[in-house]
Design a protein around this nucleic acid. Structure first.
Length: 417
RNA sequence: GUGGGUGUAGCUCAGUGGUAGAGCACUGGAUUGUGGCUCCAGGUGUCGCGGGUUCAAUUCCCGUCACUCACCCCA
């Protein structure tokens, strides 16, 4: 086995694609119902776009990007979808055409991490962005949409965690307070957390290390230090969710690893199905400063991305599709010619047709028809050809009848009735 | 980048210091031309790769690679 797919990048074989289609269809339908329109942006962007938007000191930018240079240009395979959408929003001056833009996207993203269950180097995300609406009504609507989507998909145990990290000013103030609280306990922290104390103390809140969790007991909470405007935004959001009856859990320690977030943050988790420890199905939040930061106008924004393979892991197996194929089993060369003709006629009538021209035994052809999930099998042998007839077998009802060859297409197209 | 686990048939996995098996799948037959159930028959393997110990290694030892799970981080 000399050629293999690149580590962390997987083939999605035909057997599995039906599940992907079903998920993608549910996402598209939901997004479109909420007024989102699809945008498709390139998989490659200038490296600087990601550095600027995601943040120079984030793990994604520091060590997970696939970056290469072409001539003198530094390019990067997109590690997430928001930066590209935001770039397109600015580049095409969408703000001047409509007050609010609601966009969704779907496609592969790339991060050079160590792969594990639910985490791959090429992975698929679907996401939505709203540009030009400061919320909090649309924040509530977005969270409610996601809860509804996961319910519809059948992820029964999904939990929406929400939080707020306020605007830039609030966050700066909180960072100082947290550092002050944790510094005396620096000796009790994990090495990793101690290193972060100066650079990004907020992330320590997120740590799974019991020492860090213990040290964070009694730490000041960001929700307690929101400024007036941030607080009003947050409380109104909770009010909307309560009014909608959308279930949620406030997580005061919620911190996301991308630097661009402001105010509202949310994350949907599950432990259903085959999910391993990477069980965040969907994450998002507000990024009110990004558009201006990319050289655009001062336009607020909010968005989320969901990991498709994680959702598929949570979903488990899918019901087998209905039998609709018609298989044709010819015996002998003359019959094969007739079978090809019949196959074409069936397809013209809108029937999925499979001509088994392998020249195997009838038993083998019927077995294959069954394996394909065919509803009908047309048996075509010399005896039938002489009579200008075919045997039409209904694989589902276990019945068989002889029909004139000219009548079989209409019969099959009519579902056998 | 760090740590654990696993590498044997297309798939899931047993197994032994004397060069290997089951189930599923596949093919044929029982039914000179009739599927899903049943019965019978059939084939395939550099036993991940390299080295060491040994009369002999798939098995024991060392190395290496791959896969996998977890940490970090994220979807």
């Amino acid at each position: 086995m000399s050629y293999r797919a690149v580590k962390g990048m997987n083939d999605i074989l035909p057997d599995e694609v039906a599940r992907w289609h079903a998920l993608e269809r549910a996402f598209r339908e939901t997004a479109e119902l909420h007024g989102y329109a699809e945008i498709r942006t390139p998989v490659v962007e200038g490296t600087e776009l990601f550095v600027r938007s995601i943040g120079e000191t984030t793990d994604v930018v520091e060590k997970e990007m696939y970056t290469f240079s072409h001539h003198s240009e530094s390019l990067t395979l997109r590690p997430e979808g928001t930066a590209g959408a935001a770039r397109a929003y600015v580049e095409h001056k969408a703000h001047a055409k409509e007050p609010v833009s609601r966009w969704f996207y779907l496609g592969p993203m790339f991060r050079a991490e160590r792969p594990q269950r639910g985490r791959y180097r090429q992975f698929y995300q679907a996401g939505c962005e709203i540009f030009g609406d400061p919320g909090p009504a649309c924040d509530a609507e977005m969270i409610d949409m996601l809860v509804g989507l996961f319910r519809r998909l059948g992820v029964s145990d999904v939990v929406a965690n929400i939080g707020s990290i306020g605007g830039a000013a609030t966050r700066e103030r909180y960072r100082g307070a947290l550092r002050e609280f944790l510094s005396p306990k620096a000796g009790e922290l994990s090495d990793h957390a101690r290193a972060r104390l100066e650079v990004n103390p907020l992330r320590i809140l997120d740590s799974k290390d019991p020492r860090d969790q213990a040290a964070c007991q009694g730490a000041p909470q960001i929700l307690d230090v929101l400024d007036e405007a941030d607080r009003a935004h947050w409380e109104t959001l909770l009010g909307h969710l309560d009014a909608l009856g959308t279930p949620y859990v406030v997580d005061p320690l919620l911190v996301r690893g991308l630097d661009y977030y402001t105010r509202t943050l949310f994350e949907l988790k599950s432990s259903a199905g085959e999910l391993g420890s990477q069980n965040t199905l969907c994450g998002g939040g507000r990024y009110d400063d990004m558009i201006r930061g990319l050289g655009g106008p001062s336009v607020p924004a909010i968005g989320f991305a969901m990991g498709l393979e994680r959702i598929l892991l949570a979903l488990g197996p899918m019901a087998a599709p209905a039998r609709k194929t018609c298989s044709i089993a010819p015996m002998g060369t003359r019959a094969v010619g007739k079978a090809l003709e019949l196959g074409r006629a069936l397809r013209e009538a809108g029937v999925v047709a499979d001509v088994d021209g392998r020249g195997n035994s009838l038993k083998s052809m019927l077995r294959r028809a069954d394996g394909l999930g065919a509803r009908f099998c047309i048996v075509l042998g010399d005896a039938e050809l002489e009579r200008g007839a075919v045997q039409l077998k209904d694989l589902e009802r276990h019945t068989q009848e002889e029909l004139p060859i000219g009548a079989v297409v209409a019969r099959v197209a009519g579902g056998g009735a």
